[in-house]
């Protein structure tokens, strides 16, 4: 799922400085699960910004709403009135939701309230980790189910670099070395021989290097 983190309040204050009526709009799916932009976080941010406005003696007014998914026209159309009444909307959705709003409401100022951070999961409550880079060309079948693109700081495809120590990554000692994990997994699967063959250059054109990506299912089009 998409994981996001709320922006620092100072940055949000700067973004909204020119506006008076501000709608704080949450999204009820991924960002809710990542504790960044659900109804609860909308309430917390609204309260924080009201405090900030009161401290700065400015006359900003904040309203709150949360839709099920900001990345669907139908859901954001359902609160069109609230959006229209606002001078600016702080979207606590991922970048997709922010852009959906901007596209649907061309004359409305739409501002991001979170930093969309990665695709991942919670390995324990409150601890979310990256698991997928959406590179467009999955190699997990070759790497024992551990992704070296998302989980190796250098995207290595042919084994761990010299910084792998005691199973951890040199870039962050709290991060597992993806290649140590791959080595251990393939060992358990009896497939260590896979690590001897050269994995050739990756086709990055399927990643963002190929330009904005698009999936079209002709069979589904209306």
């Amino acid at each position: 799922m998409i994981k996001a983190k709320q922006k620092p309040i100072a940055e949000i204050k700067t973004l909204i400085a020119p506006y008076r009526n501000i709608l704080i709009l949450g999204c009820g799916t991924c960002v809710t699960i990542s504790f960044a932009g659900g109804e609860k976080e909308v309430g917390m941010l609204a309260s924080s910004l009201r405090i900030a406005a009161a401290m700065d003696k400015n006359a900003q007014l904040f309203t709150e709403a949360t839709v099920q998914r900001q990345c669907e026209w139908e859901f954001i159309d359902a609160i069109a009135d609230q959006i229209q009444k606002a001078d600016a909307v702080i979207s606590l959705a991922c970048g997709i939701g922010v852009q959906a709003l901007a596209e649907r409401y061309p004359d409305k100022v739409i501002l991001p309230g979170v930093n969309t951070t990665f695709l991942g999961m919670a390995i324990e409550h409150g601890v979310m980790v990256e698991r997928c880079r959406a590179c467009g060309d999955c190699i997990l079948g070759l790497t024992g189910g551990v992704c070296p693109i998302a989980r190796c700081a250098k995207n290595l495809l042919n084994g761990p670099c010299g910084g792998s120590q005691r199973g951890k990554c040199e870039v962050n000692p709290e991060t597992d070395c993806a290649w140590q994990l791959i080595y251990d997994r393939l060992g358990k699967l009896g497939q260590l021989d896979r690590l001897s063959s050269l994995m050739t250059y990756k086709d990055w054109s399927k990643d963002y290097d190929g330009g904005p990506r698009k999936i079209v299912r002709e069979d589904l089009k209306l």
């Binding site: 609204a46 009201r50 009161a54 401290m55 007014l61």
Partner: peptide
């Protein structure tokens, strides 16, 4: 607190 009381926020929101 630098937040005035009764806070304007408290009244209007």
């Amino acid at each position: 607190s630098p937040v005035p009381y009764p806070s304007r926020a408290g009244r209007s929101n």
